[in-house]
Write a protein that binds this DNA or RNA. Structure first.
Lengths: 146, 146
DNA sequence: TTCTAACACTTGTATGTACAAATATATAAA
DNA sequence: TTTATATATTTGTACATACAAGTGTTAGAA
């Protein structure tokens, strides 16, 4: 078998693009269920985790940490402000984001949802495999983020 | 350390939902570049691969193979019909999908794009790691698809 | 000090994907 | 045969995310 040649059964299953997107769809479905009680879409919950763990990060910093584009972060913060879970403080051209009291109070519910999601996918994949897969993907992400 | 407890540095990096979505965003970015010369978004190209490899699959079957919802498949097929890359044949309630001549001719360009994408992510991740990661994710997908 | 370029963010718009409800067909039970 | 249920698809709508272009701010070069 020549080097640099793809070997695989199906034409799709051997492509990282396809498998990664498929995984993303499966896990999103699970996450939406697990996070339903929070009243927030999963991504917004993740943003709340960052904001409550470390109040005062800039939108720019937040978008880097979540690997989202700045314009997307604007929209996310907008929505969380509407729900009065965060407030912002603009200094010069930079916008800093802080949790409101209500935002801080939302953390236990979010942490519960996080745990439910974790349990759910560990149930299907097995905990060891799930933890290892997550670490492997995280490792790949770090390389992809240069 | 208690069993069933998440151990990780960041609050996000240890969650499969977050890492999988982040990977998806990185790889989508790459794929859009790689597939630009095809004039099709990457997902549509994948559908073309299925349709040309095995003409006459039903939309239902196609949506299962790609892990997409039937309504999404309707939209995909619609778009490929507009571009005259596929045609359909409805028998009873089932819609079967076939490549047009033009659709068949598009395959080489798509295959080249596939190769470009593969080379690109192997470049960043290393081929061995990339192949292994893809296989691991595929394995997880099979479990998640029950 | 003025001009220019870089930066942080916002806004309008587009796309991929999903859900819910609707339609049309097929199968099975009464 | 009539009715009920299951199946395959479509359609309207919604949402997450991105891109391109715009606005305002800072900093460095002239």
């Amino acid at each position: 078998m020549e080097k640099n040649e793809q070997q695989c059964n199906g034409p799709l299953e051997c492509c990282l693009y396809f498998t990664a997107n498929s995984l993303s769809r499966y896990i999103n479905e699970m996450a939406e269920e697990a996070f339903a009680p929070t009243g927030l879409a999963p991504s917004y919950s993740y943003l709340m985790i960052l904001v409550t763990n470390q109040p005062g990060l800039s939108q720019n910093e937040l978008s880097h940490r979540m690997n989202l584009k700045p314009s997307t972060m604007t929209r996310f913060v907008e929505k969380l402000k509407q729900r009065e879970l965060v407030y912002t403080n603009q200094e010069g051209r930079t916008v800093y984001v802080y949790p409101t009291e209500q935002g801080k109070k939302s953390r236990p519910v979010i942490d519960q949802a996080l745990k439910r999601l974790y349990d759910k996918y560990c149930d299907v994949l097995g905990e060891d495999l799930a933890v290892k897969l997550t670490a492997d993907i995280h490792n790949a992400n770090q390389k992809l983020g240069k």
